[in-house]
Simulated assay, not measured.
Amino acid sequence: MNTAYRVWDGEQMYYWGDVNLNLLIKGKEWTLYKDSAGLCPDIVASSQDGKSVFLKVTDQFQTHGKLRPIYASDIVQQEETAPGGLYGPEPFIGEVKMIDGQWCIVNEKKEECRPLFSETATNKVLGDVYQNPELLEGVE
């Protein structure tokens, strides 16, 4: 089974489908390996190293510009497209998180959470919390 994922190792983001990378998941532990010329593959990142993070893909895609999957920890801007929409015309920016089995956009400063899926709104990925943490600093 191929499942989209990405891994942040504290310095760099790795994506499923990257050449020469393999992910091994055993129970609750995971390891990202890079094929090498030798007999033993090189460990790139692991759940045991204390700095790496395994990020799952959501079931949603960016609906602005280039179609791309949305991952956990992405920073997303959601805008209503329907007049008199449920949340009003103001764009909503927050981090994508799984809450009670549903992918949500969470704005901790506003103490607000919205579903990532919406039939009346568009989602645009602005960055992610690891490579672009400044995107959440001024969010109100």
Rank of each mutant, 00 (worst) to 15 (best):
V7F: 03
Q48D: 14
G85Y: 02
D49W: 05
V76K: 04
V53H: 09
A82L: 14
K34Y: 03
R6Y: 04
A72Y: 05
V44D: 08
L136Y: 02
D74V: 09
L24E: 15
L86P: 05
S73W: 08
P133Y: 08
I75V: 10
A4R: 14
M13G: 04
D9H: 03
V129N: 02
A82C: 11
E137M: 14
V129S: 04
Y33V: 02
S36G: 15
T31S: 06
A82E: 13
E134N: 13
D100Q: 14
Q60L: 12
Y14Q: 10
V106D: 04
D59I: 12
D74G: 07
I93C: 00
E134D: 13
W103H: 10
R68V: 06
I25A: 09
I105D: 00
E95S: 07
Y15C: 09
D9M: 01
S46G: 05
L86H: 03
D35I: 09
G27S: 04
I105E: 03
P91A: 08
Y33F: 15
A72T: 11
L67N: 13
D128W: 05
S36R: 13
S47T: 09
K28A: 08
E119N: 03
M98F: 03
L135Q: 06
Q77E: 11
E137Q: 14
K109M: 11
Y14G: 10
G85N: 04
Q12W: 11
I70W: 05
T31H: 00
K124V: 02
R6G: 06
L55P: 02
D100K: 15
L135F: 04
P133I: 04
Q62I: 06
K110I: 01
G27E: 07
S36N: 12
S52L: 00
G138C: 10
G101F: 06
E112F: 07
T3R: 12
V44W: 00
C40Q: 14
V44T: 03
G10A: 07
S73L: 10
G27P: 03
Q62Y: 01
Y15H: 14
Y71P: 01
Y33H: 05
P91G: 06
V129R: 07
E119K: 09
F117C: 08
M98K: 12
C104G: 01
Q12S: 12
L136Q: 01
N132I: 06
K34W: 06
Q77L: 02
D42F: 03
